[in-house]
Structures are given as C-alpha cells and as structure tokens.
C-alpha cells in the first residue's frame, strides 16, 4: 500500500504541475507540484527496492586483468618498432595538415586596436553629446568616447574632474581645466575601471581590485594591474568643449605576446 500511495502522489504532483502551468499559476506553485511528483517517484522506487528484500551478496566472477596475446603483423620486410613508428609518422603528418584549416581561421598576429582618438577629436558621452568645460563638478566622473565611436570598448575613457590646484602641484601634464581622462579598460584583464573614489583620488577596478592614482597619471597603487591606465591628454577647443590632444599615451587594455615594447 505504501508504494501505491507514493505512485498516487506522483500522479497527483505531475497532473497538478500540468494544471498549474495551464492556468498560469506562479512558479512557486508549479515548483511545489514538481517537487511532489518527483519525490513521489523517488519514494515509490525506493520503497519498492526495499520491499524486494533481495540478496545483496550475489557473486559474479571477475576476469583476470592483463595484456592479451599480440596478433601477428603483416610482413612488410621491416622491423616491428619501425613499422609502428611509420604508422605514427603518417598520423602525425595528417596532424600537421590539420593545422592549416585551424590557422586559416585566425587573423594575422598583432591586434589592430583602433581607439578612435586623434588630436582635436571631441569627447562625447554615451548619448553622443559633446562635453562642455563646465559639464562636471569637482569630484565627479563621466564615461566618454571619441566623437563617432560611442560604445567601443577600446575608445572608452573615464573623465574625472578634480581640483586643478592638486593637479598643478602633482605636475600632471595631460590635464585641462581640472579634467583628466584615462582609458577605462584595465591593463590587467580588460575589465572596465568603473569606480572612482573621490576622497583618495583613485580609480578602482571592481573585478580584481587594482587601484590607480588619478593625480599622478593613473599610476598603480595596488592590485594585479601591471602598468598605469593609458592617459588621454586633454584640451579645450575654441567653442569650450573638451577635446583630445591625441591618442592614449600607451596601448589600451591588457598586453599580449604580439605587443612589443
């Protein structure tokens, strides 16, 4: 009777889940019905297994382990090791041939990273609006892109406004009107360096906790990043909008084998 009870529970659960799905009941109800159905199945099978009272010491012989007798090879007039090596060499030759389609998929080594920054290119925000010189107050930040390149990771930069006097004391050369900008792509693993700590003037990468000193060209304070965030030297154009003085001062993002230094 116990097994029958569990089987009925399974049926009730499965049909209950069907009904719950049919009437669009919330997931919790559907889930509970599914739990009942599967638990009923598990209990029914488990109870049946226990009720069998089957013997647990049945024996089946094991065959001894060991190598089988070698079969004779076709006679080609060469020794057995040489025969084997030739077969391996033939397979290896196909392996070399197999590299051709694989390599054909890859591009030439050396990533061409196009940031979109040139001298005189305006800084724009996510909505492609240029950044006027009074856009940010002291201590605030904005994600910027080169005009015409909104959304491209390689061109993204973080624009920060700090006290111009602090920058002057620190001897910061790439700043304009209290603004500094750095590549937003971390030199460690390519995460966006998205967090600015105003009190200590540092950028912080939320992925692996690298910290960069904003007042000193984003030099490394701590964390696994091997080099500073590349700086974007800034200027203000005649209309009062922020522009780049050129491309980033260093390659953007994490290094790789083909990036010579």
């Amino acid at each position: 009777m116990r097994i029958a009870f569990f089987l009925v529970l399974t049926i009730v659960g499965a049909l209950g889940a069907t009904a719950a799905a049919a009437v669009g009941a919330p997931p919790a109800l559907l889930g509970v019905a599914l739990v009942v159905a599967f638990l009923g199945l598990a209990c029914a099978a488990g109870a049946a297994a226990v009720a069998l009272h089957a013997p647990d010491d049945l024996r089946e012989p094991r065959e001894p382990h060991g190598p089988t007798a070698p079969t004779p090879l076709p006679d080609d007039g060469i020794s057995r090791p040489a025969f084997g090596r030739l077969w391996l060499a033939a397979l290896g030759a196909f392996g070399v041939l197999g590299l051709v389609p694989l390599i054909s998929l890859a591009r030439k080594p050396g990533r061409r990273v196009i940031t979109g920054w040139r001298s005189g290119v305006r800084l724009v925000d996510e909505n492609n609006r240029p950044i006027a010189r009074d856009r940010l107050v002291d201590g605030s930040i904005e994600t910027v892109f080169p005009q015409g390149g909104v959304g491209l990771a390689e061109g993204s930069a973080v624009l920060i406004r700090v006290d111009a006097e602090l920058l002057r004391v620190a001897g910061e050369g790439g700043a304009a009107d209290g603004y500094v900008a750095f590549s937003k792509i971390c030199t460690h693993a390519g995460c966006p360096v998205a967090i600015y700590r105003h009190a200590s003037h540092e950028l912080y990468c939320p992925c692996h906790q690298s910290r960069f000193d904003v007042l000193h060209g984003a030099r490394n304070i701590s964390g696994p990043a091997p080099r500073p965030l590349p700086q974007l030297a800034l200027d203000v154009d005649a209309q009062g909008y922020l522009v780049a003085r050129g491309d980033f001062g260093a390659p953007v993002g994490p290094d790789d084998w083909d990036r010579f230094s």
């Binding site: 638990l39 199945l41 598990a42 099978a45 488990g46 069998l52």
Partner: peptide, 10 residues
Amino acid sequence: LRTIAVFGAT
C-alpha cells in the same frame, strides 16, 4: 529501482 529513486530525488 534504486537508480529511479536517485533520478526522482535529483
């Protein structure tokens, strides 16, 4: 039967 029970429990 035991493996059906494991499946149901999973």
